[in-house]
Structures are given as structure tokens and as C-alpha cells.
Write a protein that binds this DNA or RNA. Sequence first.
RNA 1: GGAGAGGUGGGUGAGUGGCUGAAACCAACAGUUUGCUAAACUGUCGUACGGGUUAAACUGUACCGGGGGUUCGAAUCCCCCCCUCUCCGCCA
Length: 423
Amino acid sequence: MLQLQIIREQTQAVIEGLGKRNFKEIELVQQVIDTDRQRRETQKSLDDLKAQSNNDARKIGELMKAGKAEEAGILRSSVANDKEKLKAMEGTLADLEANLQELLYRIPNVPASIVPAGKSAEDNVVAHQHGTIPKLHEGALPHWELIRKYDIIDFDLGIKIAGAGFPVYKGKGAKLQRALINFFLDEAEKQGYREIQPPIVVNEASGYGTGQLPDKEGQMYFVNADGLYMIPTAEVPITNLYRDVVLAEEDLPVKNVGYTPCFRREAGSWGAHVRGLNRLHQFDKVEIVQVRKPEESYQALEDMCHYVQGLLEKLELPYRKLLLCGGDMGFNSANTYDMEVFSAAQQRWLEVSSVSNFEAFQSNRLKLRYKNKEGKTQLLHTLNGSALALPRIVAAILENNQTPEGIRIPKALVPYTRFDLIN
RNA sequence: GGAGAGGUGGGUGAGUGGCUGAAACCAACAGUUUGCUAAACUGUCGUACGGGUUAAACUGUACCGGGGGUUCGAAUCCCCCCCUCUCCGCCA
């Protein structure tokens, strides 16, 4: 949620920024300003009237004590008169506040200056590319056939016990998952991240805190009986640890990492390009989350990108780094880089990480602040990134490293898998 | 699932209708004292949204888990909800 103050004071810049996103409902900005003005006017008159009636109430008390019941009675009836007015004004104010809130929820974050304008993924900019695209041997297979051939991941069994999009990992397939998770967690720890194991369900307030609600209500699994949402990413619980928190300066920066399964309904998004591991309802992901002082957040974004790129290099996967254009960024983000690995049998780039700076957009909702040296509380910046999402990494490893003898495990991973070939 | 207890400021914890935005203590911060540290003493010490100001000063309103009600007036009385804790039951 954008800060009201910024919309009020930098209206033109906000409108221009949202233009880079191709944001269709630009009129919401003016509506916010109008609603806010009405809200303030209403509050002023309401407060004045309340001040008046507070005074009257006090006077009545004094008159009663002084035994002047008659005068008290007169005053009492005049106060009763104001009550109707008060009620009405309170109603108006509540409506205005709710409207304002609702309008603010619908406005996405303003892209950072570096973000190019654009409508869709086609307008993203390749910021960096690394590694060579492997040449596969004759008869190379896509991963969804490799997993059958080596019997390491089983979609049919998953369908039997849960449904499509819930694969069962078996034998070396399961061990590969576990190895990747441990590898990612250990690497993050070396970079100073603290490991967190959060709940994988969250309450409604947490959903609002990081912006999944009300926006993406239908995308999360919902446990009706208990009013809990299954998390679509560890970002939700880990960032919400800091909801309604005022940090001390010495607590900063916050660098957390967590592994969780992630659950996504992916309603309506099934189609041609989602075979095999490309899109799942449940998948594993290690997520890094940072909380930073505003002036440090862009440096942190760089650091996080470099860290993720380092992981991909250690896994020997060819990748490219995309600077997302305004239209392709998430609702909450001010600046996002996507990392894509090349999956050689599919001949496709697969997104395996998304690293974002939300600036104060999330912390404004979360009320995540810190007390600076002058003793002033101010909003912090939040950032997060996948480091990394497993299924597509697995797909790329399987496809790129296949040989007639079997699938070669990247060297960095062998200490974790304790085997170097799937055959 | 059953029974009970409780939710007040950073913490402990007073407060059963007006003088309570809230005692006291602790913590924190600033200062005095001191050769330094400690102790002692003095002062400051909530948040949000408004008005006001170049900025302050100043000022209004709201907030004692959340929502509603009674009353001229609610932390205090009534109703509903939520949460936490304890015991019992069940269970990994």
C-alpha cells in the first residue's frame, strides 16, 4: 500500500510511475486525493463537535456536584440533540475511511526509476547472461520423460493420493530435493542469513500484511474450518514476523532465510507450457527475506541478486537475469529481477527466482518501522527473493546434465546427495 | 472437545462511572554529582489521525484485546467475538 502522504505530496510522480506499469485505473489516484480531503474535513468537524460535547459532559458533572440540577438538565437536553448529528458524522467518516482504504489497496507500487515502461514479459530487459547452453546428445529427453525413465518423480501416484500438480518424489528424486534444500540453506547461512522455520499456514491478517489479500484470494488454498491460508511462499510468514513491529536501529539489517513447501492453486493457468515440473500446486522453495533501512535497500537488492546468481553458477546452470518492465512486475514490487535458467531439452528459459524490492509498500501495510538516531519512527523497506525454487531447477539439472549413462549431479551438490549420477 | 483464569503504556502492575492518557515501580533517554565506573538525585519518557507552523511551539479527537450497547459522561457497567494461560479429555 502506497503511503497516503506520498500520493498527496508527489501526485504527478506517482501518476507517471504507475504509467510505466500500464496501470489502467489511474483515476484511482485522484479519487484517493479527493476522498482523503473529504475525510479530513469530516474528521475536523466531527472532532470539533466531540470536543464540544466532551466539554458539556464535564459541565454537567460539575453542575450536578454543585447541586444545580436544573441547569444540568437544560444542558443535558442540548447535548442529546448533538448526539444524532454525531452519529451521522461518525457514519460518514467510517465510510470515507473504508473507501479510502479500499482505493489504496487497489493501487500497485510505483516502479523505481530504473524500471523500464512496458506491458508484458516482452518488454523485460536482459540485464545479464551467464554460462553456455549445453549441446545434448542424440535422443535427449525432456525432464518429464527422464523422471519416468529413472523412476524418481511420480505424477500418477500424486494424482492418486492428492491430485494433478502434487508430484511424489522417490528414491534419488527425493534425495535430490533434500540435497538442494540443504545446499541452499547452508549457502544462505554463509552469507549471514538466519534460518527460520515458519508455519506453512497463516491467518488473514498475515495475508493482508504482505499483500496476497485481498488481491490473490483465489490463488491460495484456504482451510475453511480454521480460517487459515496455506502459504504460497515463505515470504508471507517470514515477512509477517515483522508485522506491527518497531525495530531498534541495532536490529538492522534483518536477513532471514527459510525453507517451506509452497502451495498455489494456479486456478485457470494450466495449459501448453506447464508440463512436468514447470508448474505445480505444491513445490519446495528456499526464500531469502531482508528488512532494510530505506537508504540501503537498493544495495541489498543488488546483493541478493548476486547471491542468487552465485547459486546458479555453483549449480552450473546457464542463466539470464531479467530486469522486469513495469507491466510484468508484481503488484507490490518497486523493482524486480527474475532469474531464468535454460532447460536444454525443452529449449526454454524457466523462471527460478524473482528478487524484489518492495520499498515501503509492504511495510506500510505491515506497520514495520524502526526508530532512527533522532528517535523518529519511520517505515523500513522489505525485500525478498527465491533462493531458489526447486522444481524448475530440478528440471534444468535433469535435462542439461543428461548423458547416455545417466544424469550427472553438479559437483557442488554431490556432498549433499552423496551420489553423482542418477541412472 | 469440557472446565476455569486472564487480556491496561517497553516490562511488572494499580485502577469498579466524571479530578485517569491512565498511580507506583522497573527499564530507557537527557542532565547533575563523580578522577573513571557504579550509586544517588533531577528531568523527559505512548501511538494514530486531524488543526496549526517554513519548522516548531501550541492544540483537537481517538485508543486500556476487537466490535456493539447503557449513560450527559466508560479502562470501569451490559452483550457478542477474538486471543492467551491452566487443568481434564483426545492425540503425533
